[in-house]
Design a protein around this nucleic acid. Structure first.
Length: 590
RNA sequence: GACCCCAUAGCUCAGCCGGAUAGAGCAACUGCCUUCUAAGCAGUAGGUCGCAGGUUCGAAUCCUGCUGGGGUCGCCA
């Protein structure tokens, strides 16, 4: 039950009847106005700007927005859920609802575990691609942000009703996996007892390749050692990629992140069917005249030392909104990364997705336009790509930056951070900021048990709510605290202002979900939960000075029941929202 | 040189599709709190929403220009 959506519909109905009566033009777009909570709660429960939005169109019948608003307010006053509808300011309509509406909301949230989901959800499939860290080493903290963001966004969209496919693109083609293979080969020789000394410049020096080297030695003995590189490389490469992906999958599992599809870049050109999807997509675009052989102007500003003007196979991305055309083939005839990426996104289109979201690191910002151009091109304009860029994470400890250097051995992996502060803290903090703002992550702060630590604050609200329910059970052992039973509680006994405020905020959950899903912004849910927790803590504390406000009242079973129902509704919304974020909702804090 | 992101209270940040007097936490000041789960609660004070224009009945929000910070910039991954 979403009171905002409901009143949106009712007001649209009123406007519709005005249209039928000829008081408004018949072609009004009834989706332009909003119904929202007023900034100042003393104004009422709902506010709408409808009269101002359509003031121009209403001019023939109503001389000014206030007069128009008055007419709408008059119609609203007849609604059995409306206590009062008043015109304010330049033409706002403030609506005060009767108390039973919020009781209905609480009942809905208790009776239905789906509370928060849209009543008429958009069920269109959507493909969310996230993480896509190169399979050349363990995940670092920056990957973690994109991973958590993508996972929470996927959860959010799924909760909002979308059919979500979660996807990971494995960059297992290209030069960096050859470097990986050579690095693993060094570790293989090391495992065979050879003194390899320092890992040469240009190879990956990390210890994480040692197990792969040992496993290679175990599987192949010395058989590979003296073969030419061309013979061992494909084998070692495959082996090392699998080892790295296993490691990454474990890192992801430690963060409770899952994917439905792991899509291999190499499989585009190297597969059992012997097809070349990259070539196919280039030929397809060429046939439509948007691929040509030509030259690009040199980049402005700092010219690369080795700049040479060369003919290349180019994609006419400028036709689709990009700044310059982009290369599809290197001068040696091999495909660019971008070309593979087009083929990959084409596969998404071929699998039926017209709605796709990619989650990238901020350093890939320069690729957004060309990828969106490519998606438009390969789908004939049918599909749209939204790219969410996650800005950098600045890792801190007690206000001091954590220095990171691979060489000095102080490199902090994502796994290190998760092991230190726990998965809930990592996930919540990464979501407690807009994706396009840089994030300061303080390892000391997130394990504090205080108001300053939002993870603790929100989880504690849930634990405290559950505790209240346990207390109620202790006071009235015969009380049935099943949510279904609580839905029948005498909710009209909830007369205190603090209780009303909680109910009103609980009533906002569905619209928060809807707005966050539409904007692809899971952080809004984190902030909403923080607000809800804050309101609950402060109401709970009021009970210290004013015992009559306490949730459990041993003399009043009916009142306790009503208040426990409120608490149960609150904890279920907290648990639901935390679930969307992939953060635990603990029964108690330890 | 171009493109992308950011700029809101002393600090860290919210601000929903343009809406009413721009919000929260920390820090500061004042008072309270030893408990239905403790690690706090209530209040006060604090802002030219980077600058300048524009659109609009109405702009922190949209558009243009500028300033400052970050990121990226042919075949790299």
């Amino acid at each position: 039950m979403n009171v905002f959506a409901e009143f949106q519909a009712r007001i649209a109905q009123i406007l519709h009847s005005f249209m039928a009566e000829g008081r408004l033009p018949g072609d009004l777009d009834l989706s332009r106005f909003v119904v929202e909570p007023p900034r100042d709660p003393s104004h009422g429960d709902l506010a709408t700007n409808a009269a101002m939005v359509y003031a121009k169109e209403a001019k023939a019948s109503f001389s000014n927005p206030r007069e128009f608003a008055t007419a709408i307010a008059y119609a609203l006053a007849g609604d059995p859920d409306v206590d009062a509808a008043e015109v304010a300011g330049p033409g706002f309509i403030n609506i005060r609802l009767r108390a039973h509406v919020f009781a209905d909301v609480l009942r809905a949230s208790l009776a239905n575990s789906d509370y928060g989901r849209p009543a008429t959800p958009d069920t269109k499939p959507v493909n969310v691609e996230y993480v896509s860290a190169n399979p050349t080493g363990p995940m670092h903290v920056g990957h973690g942000r994109g991973a958590v963001f993508g996972d929470a966004l996927a959860n959010l969209l799924a909760f909002a009703g979308r059919k979500v496919t979660r996807e990971y693109y494995i960059n297992d083609a290209g030069a960096q996996v050859d470097v990986l293979a050579r690095s693993a080969f060094m570790r293989y020789r090391e495992a065979l007892g050879e003194a390899i000394g320092e890992i040469p410049e240009g190879l990956y020096p990390g210890d994480y390749l040692k197990p792969a080297g040992q496993a290679l030695a175990k599987a192949h003995g010395a058989a590979l050692r003296d073969k030419p590189e061309a013979e061992w490389l494909p084998l070692v490469r495959r082996f090392a990629i699998d080892a790295m992906m296993d490691m990454i999958r474990m890192d992801l599992a430690a963060m409770n992140i899952r994917h439905d599809v792991f899509f291999s870049e190499r499989s585009l050109t190297d597969n059992a069917e012997r097809t070349d999807a990259v070539r196919a997509v280039i030929e397809d675009l060429r046939a439509r005249g948007i691929v040509y052989v030509g030259r690009l102007p040199p980049p402005k500003g700092q010219l690369p030392d080795d700049w040479e003007d060369r003919e290349q196979t180019l994609f006419r991305s400028t036709d689709f909104g990009d700044d310059v055309d982009r290369a599809l083939m290197k001068s040696d005839g091999s495909y660019t990364y971008f070309a593979s990426d087009i083929a990959y996104h084409k596969s998404k289109v071929d699998r039926g997705f017209t709605d796709m979201i990619d989650v990238w690191g901020a350093d890939h910002g320069g690729y957004v336009k060309r990828m969106q151009a490519a998606v438009k091109a390969v789908s004939g304009g049918e599909a749209a790509l939204d790219v969410k860029l996650c800005q950098l994470v600045k890792l801190m400890r007690g206000g001091e930056p954590v220095t990171m250097s691979k060489r000095a051995g102080t490199f902090v992996t994502l796994r290190d951070v998760v092991d230190e502060v726990g998965v809930d803290a990592v996930r919540f903090m990464m979501l407690f900021r807009k994706n396009d703002a840089t994030l300061e992550f303080d390892l000391a702060k997130v394990i504090e048990q205080s108001r300053e630590n939002p993870v603790f604050y929100v989880q504690y609200a849930h634990a405290r709510g559950r505790s209240v329910m346990r207390q109620a059970k202790a006071a009235f052992p015969d009380l049935d605290l099943e949510t279904g039973t609580l839905a029948g509680a005498p909710l009209d006994l909830l007369a205190d202002e603090g209780e009303g405020a909680l109910a009103r905020l609980i009533a906002q959950y569905p619209r928060q979900i809807e707005a966050a899903a539409a904007a692809h912004e899971p952080h809004r849910i984190a902030f909403y939960l923080h607000d809800l927790a804050s309101l609950f803590h402060s109401h709970w504390n009021r009970g210290k000075d004013q015992p009559h406000l306490r949730f459990v009242n041993e003399e009043r079973r009916d009142l306790t029941l009503a208040r426990v129902a409120l608490v149960a509704s609150l904890t279920s919304v907290l648990a639901s929202g935390l679930g969307v974020l992939g953060v635990g909702a603990p029964e108690e804090m330890r």
